[in-house]
């Protein structure tokens, strides 16, 4: 059951490419080919424009909210090869940092889990992935993985922080020894997993199943189970669910969620990690849920534009 509770007219002058709510679901950030990023206060069904961020010189592809423990911080990436990190100070939004280290369009930005600190992964059409870590005093440490995906990285998504033992047992002040991992997808049709070892980023896994560009990847939030789950979607219309049960993270198995007739642009996990929203080229959004027996089923279909929903009947589902 999906019902529209608020429709925000963004007044963007060109195509919107991404819209993301903040941690609390009270603010909405949008970005567009009109080169702007906008922030709306959407509490109580409202839509008050809070900020209109200008600074990019090309279409802005994605926005990402940092965890609020770091303040109100938003990252945006653009075709202009820049990543801009915006911060609200005293009610005003301003550039906190501008990263110009990519040679081509930056297609994806994603903040790491707050446990890792303020760290941003950026995937670019130049094939590289940059990792920007805030080190305090306006300083950002940059690490770059070159040639992560030949002719372009389209998406990055962090693994949830795996808690080694209980948080409470950690002596205060000492950071737990998290293993930082993220997943990326690119124009080489590959899904790649990356892992930080001794401060260096290394390719951990290479997952092959797609036969065309991987458009998006999404690492599912942890729901307390030892299983890691990743969704990937592709130009080839396929959405795969990758799971890994072994603690070492070496054995990944792919399960085809569905083969759509059109490019699949975006996948998004629900906060509880049990529902996957799949956005296709036909502007259709479908929601998928894993049943008890491990099969993925489409539970609803957010129709084009209307946000209205027709629950997929069995017969329809069989046709798909």
């Amino acid at each position: 059951m999906v019902s529209v509770i608020n429709t925000v007219d963004t007044s963007h002058e060109d195509m919107i490419h991404d819209a993301q709510m903040d941690y609390y679901g009270t603010r909405l950030a949008t970005c567009s080919s009109d080169r702007t990023v906008k922030i709306f206060d959407v509490r109580n069904g409202g839509q008050i424009l809070v900020a209109d961020l200008r600074g990019h010189e090309g279409p802005v592809w994605q926005v990402a909210w940092a965890h609020p423990m770091f303040g109100n911080i938003l990252a945006s990436c653009s075709y202009d090869r820049k990543v801009i990190i915006w911060k609200e100070e005293n009610g005003a939004w301003d550039k906190m940092y501008e990263y110009n280290g990519h040679e081509s369009s930056v297609n994806s930005v994603c903040w790491g889990p707050y446990e890792f600190g303020l760290i941003l992964a950026c995937g670019s059409s130049d094939g590289a992935i940059s990792l920007l870590t805030f080190t305090g005093d306006q300083q950002w440490d940059v690490k770059k993985i070159s040639n992560a995906h030949t002719i372009g990285c389209n998406a990055v998504s962090w693994a949830p922080a795996v808690i080694p033992g209980s948080l409470i047992d950690q002596p205060s002040g000492q950071k737990p020894n998290y293993v930082k991992r993220f997943v990326s997808g690119g124009c080489d049709n590959l899904v790649k997993l990356w892992k930080e070892e001794d401060g260096q980023w290394k390719e951990d896994q290479k997952l092959e199943a797609h036969s065309d560009w991987v458009r998006d990847v999404g690492w599912a939030p942890s729901i307390g189970l030892p299983t890691s789950t990743i969704a990937s979607c592709s130009q080839d219309g396929r959405v795969f669910i990758w799971t890994c049960d072994d603690p070492a993270g070496n054995t990944w198995t792919a399960k085809l969620l569905h083969k759509f007739n059109d490019v699949v642009w975006h996948v998004s996990w629900s906060i509880t990690g049990n529902i996957l929203a799949v956005s296709g080229g036909d502007n259709k959004v479908t929601l998928w849920k894993e049943s008890m027996d491990g099969q993925w089923a489409c539970i609803s279909d957010v129709s084009k534009g209307q946000g209205a929903v027709s629950t997929i009947t069995d017969s329809q589902q069989n046709e798909q």
Partner: peptide, 22 residues
Amino acid sequence: WIRRPVGASFAFGGKLVSLENA
């Protein structure tokens, strides 16, 4: 081909944010 026209993302509280580029 890199201008993503769609993208529904989940947010807290079972909210789904979807784009409409008419």
